[in-house]
Design a protein around this nucleic acid. Structure first.
Lengths: 251, 251
DNA sequence: AGCGTTGTTCGTACGTCGTACGAAAGTCTC
DNA sequence: GAGACTTTCGTACGACGTACGAACAACGCT
């Protein structure tokens, strides 16, 4: 009577084999990711995700043991975005590393909360694929294992450090109220006026009164965050080529 | 009768001017820092700090508007540790930047949670002093404002990226159960066995079965995290010297 | 001496969070 | 049908940050 009714319509009768769960981990991770991107990482709660999926909160715990595991899933979903289709990976190590690093930067900048989130998460499969891809990028260099590892680690560290800083800046730029920004500007100007920061004052020069973001951008000669990142990367890779005796791509 | 009793003992009578608050922000920040260092950042709660100080929870809100402000205080306390006494700052830009970066690395590695915490915090006074000190380090280079800014930003990015990764590793090493580590090792070995990761497998070579930490350390030739960091830094600074036409310290 | 003012402490309460527990409901095998 | 299983999820607990406002102490006035 409850459900086995023989005359029940196809539409209401579940498909055979429908003992499969309603959701998949990918689905859940994607939902969580969407929330994080639109409302910030702190808006991602088990209740919120479940509500978005139209499920009970505790249902999620059938797919995942703790929230940390769910965050690990989100992280792995992001690392999937980072991967470059193998055929698009340039042959020369310099170009390949640049491509991998730039791609990583772009993706991480789209999800600036990711770096804060992955604190407890161990490496997932897509993280390993990213690592593998980085190794592939330097495969042709003839470096030994230790040198390869150090090189790609160096690049990854720079990427993540840069995202950490730029992401913060960008978050403050968008999230922070204009009032708070103005407050900070007043504070900074007052500090500069004390004379305790001669180099900083000299650096900003005439721009001292401007709002810091504009001053920063003008100091960079109008370069975008991305260009600044890439020029730093180029500098780093030059140093590597010099120190490790690698060739640069002729162009 | 309640307190104005004229015959009251000195010992029980408060000092004049004792309407001053019981605590200082520095005190509170130091307490919070101690908790974070010994029990992890997640153990830092308003209630916990207050209990440590022997005060009511809400008392803290007289000194601080929100918990985020308190975290900003903690962050600034850490940045104070980062500062190098000016007379100890080497004259040559290369040595000076190396000293600043190494010092920053050491301090941040002692408080690995700091990078995750400062997400919302705007620059505090000690952060500004660190920035000023970095500028002082490159003051003698003759670079223009834009180049100086980009150079110290590059170094800072690398430092923070490296701490982010090493700190994670170290946290996993200490916090994580041996059982979890073993589980991960099994998983990683299985992944390598799939053949999807030829470069990674080749990298680890004979060490494939070992525990990852040992393998990593052996790949690095027994170098400590600190040495690895410094060698990456050296590479980076070489690149900068080359690209920007700066001299290296004769030695 | 008494009183209002102001600075400082903190108890209570609300809504949020992660999640332990175990009961319900559906599906499969006999 | 009767069990055994998978899958869903309602309820409840103890943490969290913090809004609100009462309590209390020290001072400047009359």
């Amino acid at each position: 009577m409850t459900s086995g009714e023989s005359g029940e319509l196809i539409w209401t009768r579940p498909e055979p084999g429908s003992r499969r769960p309603r959701f998949t981990r990918d689905q859940i991770a994607a939902t969580a990711l969407a929330i994080a991107d639109t409302e910030g990482f702190s808006a991602v709660s088990m209740r919120r995700i479940a509500a978005e999926l139209g499920a009970g909160t505790m249902t999620l715990y059938y797919y995942v043991r703790t929230k940390d595991e769910l965050v690990a899933l989100m992280d792995d979903a992001i690392m999937a975005e980072v991967l470059i289709p193998p055929e698009e990976l340039p042959a020369h190590w310099y170009d390949a590393l640049t491509a991998v690093a730039t791609r990583t930067w772009e993706v991480l900048m789209r999800h600036p909360w990711a770096l804060h989130a992955l604190q407890n998460a161990p490496r997932g499969p897509n993280s390993m694929r990213h690592f593998e891809q980085s190794l592939a990028a330097v495969a042709g260099t003839g470096l030994d294992a230790s040198e390869k590892l150090r090189l790609i680690t160096l690049v990854d560290d720079y990427v993540r450090g840069n995202v950490l800083r730029c992401g913060e800046l960008r978050a403050g730029r968008e999230g922070g109220s204009a009032e708070a920004a103005e407050e900070f500007q007043r504070y900074a100007a007052a500090q500069l006026a004390t004379g305790e920061f001669p180099h900083t004052a000299a650096l900003f020069g005439d721009l001292a009164g401007e709002d810091p973001e504009a001053a920063y951008s003008s100091l960079m000669g109008g370069m975008s965050d991305r260009d600044v990142f890439r020029s730093g990367l180029a500098l780093l890779l030059r140093g590597a080529a010099d120190r490790l005796g690698l060739s640069l791509p002729g162009r």
